[in-house]
Amino acid sequence: MWPDAKLLDLLRLDDREAFEILYNKYSAKLFHAAYNLFRDSDVCEDLVQELFIDLWTKRNQLNITSLESYLKVAIRHRVIYYIRTQKATLDLALIEELIEKYTADSKLLQNDISQLLETNVAQLPEKCRQIFTLSRKEYLSNKEIASRLNISIKTVENQMTIALRYLRTGLTDYLPSVVALLMVYMMS
């Protein structure tokens, strides 16, 4: 088997056989990585195909040091983008399983986490809290928030980073339950 670095060199020289070897070596792994994020095999197949088409199209400009890492990150980004653009459908059975797993013990845990989240959001600096609320509760984009508050998009991004970092540290112990709760919140 050829090492990835050699295959990349050949790919840059328009070698179709090197491309086929790379495709055969990585396509199944990338499909499973995408499928683990959401359960739609047709979409996952399309995303993998698009990734390899893009790899072939940009073969002469590639500056990749670790092909496997590059492909894993690229497929993850494609899946996330697909979900963000709401083209993806979430696997409701999987979500219900998560919710059941993390909320079966009691409603008290749910209430505790909701209260902790609200308390932590309330402790954010005013502008940071306002931006977080507009983003997560009113579902505004960074551009829309910046326009509404008459601030730069970069300021919105920075404030969201601060808010999420703060909330993440405050909810670390409850993280699995928070994920399940957020899914319930998003579905209601």
Rank of each mutant, 00 (worst) to 15 (best):
C44M: 09
Y185N: 11
E118S: 10
D4C: 05
L134K: 02
N24A: 10
L22P: 02
L124Y: 13
N120W: 06
R12N: 12
L92P: 02
Y139W: 12
Q61C: 02
K6D: 10
C128W: 10
R168I: 11
Y82Q: 12
L10F: 04
D14A: 05
N120D: 11
L134A: 02
Q49M: 02
L164W: 04
L10N: 09
D9R: 11
S114Y: 04
R76Q: 12
L10V: 03
Q159T: 08
I99M: 11
L47E: 09
H77C: 10
D54E: 10
N142R: 09
L55S: 09
M1W: 11
L149A: 00
L108T: 14
Y81I: 05
L98N: 15
K137G: 04
L90G: 02
L67N: 05
R148Q: 06
T161E: 06
Q130S: 08
E157S: 07
K143R: 14
V184T: 15
K137C: 08
V184D: 05
L149M: 14
R129K: 15
M160F: 04
S147D: 07
V121C: 00
D15P: 01
L13G: 06
E118Y: 02
L108P: 01
F19S: 13
A122S: 14
D173C: 03
Y82K: 11
T155P: 00
Q130T: 10
K25M: 06
K154S: 02
K127Q: 13
E97D: 14
L47R: 13
A146H: 07
D173E: 14
T57R: 14
R148L: 13
Q159M: 13
L124V: 02
D54K: 13
T89Q: 15
T161D: 05
T65G: 15
Q110N: 08
G170D: 10
L55C: 08
R16M: 07
E144A: 01
V179S: 05
A104D: 06
V179I: 15
H32T: 03
F52H: 03
A28G: 12
L182M: 11
D4F: 03
G170N: 15
Y70K: 07
L117H: 06
A180M: 03
S27T: 01
R136C: 10
T161K: 14
Q123W: 09
I153N: 05
D4N: 12
N150A: 08
A163S: 12
L175S: 02
L167Q: 03
C44E: 06
T169G: 04
A28D: 13
I80C: 09
A5D: 13
S66L: 09
L30H: 12
Y35A: 02
Q110T: 15
R129P: 04
L124M: 04
T119R: 10
E45W: 13
A74I: 00
I75H: 04
I162W: 10
I113T: 14
M186V: 11
M187T: 08
V156S: 01
K107C: 01
E118N: 13
E96L: 09
I21W: 07
N63F: 06
R136M: 10
T169Y: 03
W2K: 12
D14Q: 06
N150W: 01
I145W: 01
L109N: 11
A28C: 05
E138Q: 15
N63Y: 07
S177M: 05
S147M: 01
K154Y: 01
N150D: 07
L171F: 10
Y70N: 06
V48G: 05
